[in-house]
Design a protein around this nucleic acid. Sequence first.
RNA 1: GGGCGGAUAGCUCAGUUGGUAGAGCGCAGCCCUUACAAGGCUGAUGUCGCAGGUUCGAUCCCUGUUCCGCCUACCA
Length: 915
Amino acid sequence: MTEAKLDKVYAPKAIEEKWTKYWLENELFRADVNSTKPAFSMAIPPPNVTGSLHMGHALNNTLQDILARYKRMKGFDVLWLPGTDHAGIATQNVVEKKLHAEGLDRHKLGREKFIQRVWQWKEESGGAIINQLKRLGASCDWSREQFTMSPELSKAVREVFVRLYEEGLIYRDERLINWCPRCLTALSDIEVEHEETPGKLYHIRYPLADNPKEFLTVATTRPETMLGDTAVAVHPDDERYNKFIGKEVLLPLTSRRIPVIGDSILVDIEFGTGAVKITPAHDFNDFEAGLRHSLKRINIFNERAHIKQNIPDINPEIMEEITGLHVHKARERVIHILKEHGFLTKSEDHKHVIGKCYRCKTVIEPYLSPQWYVKVKPLAEEAIKAVEQGKTRIIPEGWQNTYFEWMRNIKDWCISRQIWWGHQVPAWYCLKCNKGEIYEVHGEKRFSAKAKPIVSRTEPKDCPACKSKDIVRDNDVLDTWFSSALWPFSTLGWPEKVETQNLASLLQRYYPTSVIVTGFDIIFFWVARMMMMGLKFMGNVPFRDVYIHALVRDAEGQKMSKSKGNVIDPLVIMDKYGTDAFRFTLAAMAAQGRDIKLAEERIEGYRNFCNKIWNLARFTLMNLEGFSDHWPLTTGHYSLADKWILTRLNAAIKDVTEDLETYRFNDAANSAYQFVWHELCDWYVELIKFDLRGENSEERKMTAQTVLLKILKDSLKLLHPIMPFITEEIWDVLPHEEGDKGQGAGVSSIMQQPFPKTGEDYPDAERDMILIMDVIKAIRNIRSEMNVSPALTIEAVCYSSDVSVIRLLETEGSHIKTLSKVSVLNISAPAGRPENCATAIADNIEIFIPLKGLINFEEEEKRLKKDIEKIEKEILALERKMSNKEFIERAPKEVVEKDKARLEELLQKKTKLEQ
RNA sequence: GGGCGGAUAGCUCAGUUGGUAGAGCGCAGCCCUUACAAGGCUGAUGUCGCAGGUUCGAUCCCUGUUCCGCCUACCA
C-alpha cells in the first residue's frame, strides 16, 4: 500500500523554500566544463545591484530558466551565468541619497571614501536581487556569479579600452554632449529620453548693425541661450533675407555684433521666421553649423546649468540680474527684459521635444565639454554583417530592422561619465606637458581636449615624454554599458585565456553563448554593443540567437512605474499565488511580438492549475495499491482509453518540444495545460476509475496504474521547465523505477531526467475514443438541457447502421454508462424514434433517451428546433459552396471531400431529427 | 518626419503554409459524484476596425483608411 505523501492542500511556499535549498545545496545548476555533453550557455542580462526584482526581471529570467531547464533535460551541459551590474549612475544616486540623509555629500566625503561607501553598500544590500532570482527558481550556476566591477571584469574593461585606444577607435574630443545638470555627467545619446512637451516659440528682433532701424527676426524656443549667440543664419535662397548675408546684427541685451550667414542645412525657409539664431555651445544643430562656419562658441552656463559670471559682451546690469540663475529661471528673466525693450515681437504655442535624463528625468542640457568617444562605425559594420549572414538570429524577426536601422545610423559613442562609481578611465596626464590645458571643477583637475593622455593598462610611473613624475589620473569613469558590452566573454575569463588553461576551455566551450534573452528596451544599450565588442575581441558573435521578449504592463496596458502607482510586485504575487503559478502565467502570456498586460485573475487561474496538478498527483498516489513497477507495459494490455491518452501524450510532447525549440513559450504552456487538465484529468482519470478500483480485472488495474503513473511522470517532466517546484515535489514522492531517480550521490531531481520522448501512436484508438466521448457529451447535454438531476440514473438507446460502430459501442459502452450515468445502454435497438424520447445525434450515432415521467415535452421541442435550425444554417452554407462549380474544380480534393461528407452527415442528421 | 506593432466573445489575449473562429477569466443553469468547490457537468455570446482588391473561397495575402500604442529623429 502506497501511502499518500502529499499534503491534502497545496501550499507552495514551503515547497518552494525546500527545493530551492535542495537544488542550491546539491549544486544541481552547476555547469561542467569537462562534460562530454554538448554545451548550452546563456549570460544573464545582469540586473543592477541596486535593483529589486520587478516584472521585467521576472519575465526575463523565467523565460531563461525555462530554456535552461529544458535544455538540461534535453541532455545539454547548461551554463547559465549569473551576475549583477554595477550600474554607475543608478548606484551612485542611491548611495548619494543615503549620504544626504546623513547630512553629507560625496564632495565632502571625497572620492576614495565615497567609493568605499558604495562597496560597503554593495556588500550589505547588493545581494537582494540575487536572492530574489533564486526564489524565482532561476537555475543559474551561482558558483560563477559575476559583478561588472570585480577585479577580473575590470581587467577586461581596461584591456578593451587600451586596445581600442591604440587602434585609434577610442579618442578624446571637445564636443557638445548631453549633460544632466543633476547627475553632473555626460550621457550618451541613447541615455536621453525624448518627450514631447508644449512650449513656446519666441520671435525676437535682432537689429542690423549698420541700420538699427531694420530688423532680422529670429524664432527660438530657448531665448535665454541668445546670450551665447555667435551668428544668425538665413537660407541662401530666401529672397526676404539673403541680402543680409555677410552683414552683421546687434545681439540684443549685449554689445556683441554677430554675422548673418547663409546656411541651407540649418535653415528651413518655411519654419518660424526663416531666420535662426546660432548658439554653437548650447544646441546640437548650431554646434554643427558653428563647425561649418568656424564660429566662436560662447558657453553661458556651468555644470549645474546655472548662468555663469561675466559672459562676454553682456550689459552689466543684465548680467548681474541673471548670474547664478538656473537656465529655466533665466529664461523668464530674459523674456521679460526682451519684452520691456521691445525686442520680443511674438510668442506662439509650439510643441517640441525635450530630452530628459533616463535615470533622474532631469531636463538635459547640451553642454560643451571634453569627453572620451568610441569610433563605432567600423565596429558596427561587422555587427551588421554578422546578422545579415545569419551568424546571429534575432527573434522575433521584426526586431532585425530596428537593429539594422540603428547600426546603420550609429554615431560615435560618448563613453565618459563625470561620476565616481564605475570603471575609471585608464588614462593619465602629465601636469608638466599639459600645463595650459588644466582646469578645475569641484577641486578635481580636468583636462581640455587638447591635453595628451597617457593610456595604459597599469599606472605609469612617470611621463613617457618628459619623465616627470607629476602625473594625474583622468577623473572620468566609463559608461556602465561599456562593461556590459563585454559581458558574454569577460564573464568567461577573458582576457586571461593565455595564462590559465581552465579559463581558456571555459571560453572555448561556452562562447559564443547559445542565446541571449532580453527586452527590446535594451537592444541598443546592450545587444548591439555586445555584438560589436564580441566580434571585435573574440572574432565571433557573442550569441547565436537573440530572443527579444515583450514588456510587462499593467492590466490597462500602462507601463508599470512607481510614479503611476500601478506596479505589481512579483514578490507579492509569488507569496500570494506561488512561484509556479506566477511563472506559468508569464510563460503563457509571453506571445511573441506583443506586450503583456498582466491581470491578477489570470495568475489565479494558473494557481488553480497548480492545484489541479497537485490533486491529480494525490489521486494517483491513492490509487497505486498493489502497484508493481515490473508490470510490463505492452500494447496487448492497453485499453482504448490507454491508447488514446498515450496518443494524446505524444501530441503534447511534440507540441511542447517544438514550441520550446522555437521560443514559443505561450504555446508550450497552453499545450501542456490543455493536455493535463482537459484530456488527462477530465477524461482519462474518469475513464480508468473503474479499472483502478479493481472492478474489472487485476490486469486492467495493473495496466491502468502503470499507464497513469507514466503519463503523470511525463506530464511533470513536460511542465518542469515552467513549473519547477511543484513538479519536483510530486516527482519526489512518486514511486520510481531503477534509474528513474537520477544519478550520483543520492541526489535526485526531476531536472536530471530526460525530457519526454514520443512513443507509439494509436490513431484508430484516438478516433474511436472521440466517438465514445461525443456520445457521452451528447447524453450529458440532453440531461442538462432537460433538467434531469445528476443524481438520477437513466436509460439510453444508441443506434448506428455501421457495424464497426455498433461493436465499438458494445465493447466500450461501460464508459458511456459511467460517465453519463446511464444504467441500461441499449445498442441494438432498431432505427426510428421511440416514443417519448429526447434525441441527439453524435457522429451519426442516434441517441434516444426515454424520458417518461421526467420530461418537459415543450423543452424537448424547443431543444430539437434549435438543433435543427443550427444544422439548417450550416447545410445552406455548404450547399451554396457545393453548387459552386469552381470550388469543386479548384479547391483541394480533401477539402471538397470533407465538405461533401459533412453535408451528407448533416442532411442525414436533419432527417433523423425531424422524424 | 521616418519606422514598427496592435485593432478577433463583456474583459485579457491565442489563431504558423487562405477552406465552416479558440482559450482563460467573467456570465447563466445544474451538481458538495470519496483527487480537486482553487472543483465537475452543460450552455450563451463574435458582420475577426473600416473600404476596396486578388481568389472558387480572406480573420489570414495586397492597397487605401481610421483609431490606439511603441520606437526613432537636430525643425530652430
